[in-house]
């Protein structure tokens, strides 16, 4: 979760000088990749809680 929170900040916060950049990794927008990682991690955590 800490890494995901950090990723969210690196991609979505901080000073913007040049306008929003389109950052892609293998065709996936990195901006959205960060959020998806967070959601995936939360879903995984929820599943673990349910099975525990």
């Amino acid at each position: 979760m800490s890494l995901l929170e950090l990723t969210d900040r690196l991609l979505n916060r901080g000073v913007v000088l040049t306008g929003e950049a389109t950052i892609s990794v293998a065709g996936v927008d990195l901006i959205y990749l960060g959020l998806n990682l967070v959601l995936t991690a939360v879903e995984t955590m929820s599943e673990k809680q349910k099975t525990a």
Partner: peptide, 30 residues
């Protein structure tokens, strides 16, 4: 292209700069 490794390398640089002097971190990809 900007990739995942560069994201965290950017963070390393920002963190080390902030440890040396007062800085405003810039969003990755600018």
């Amino acid at each position: 292209p900007l990739d995942r490794e560069l994201v965290f390398d950017h963070h390393r640089i920002v963190e080390q700069l902030c440890a040396r002097t007062a800085c405003l971190p810039v969003r990755f990809g600018q």
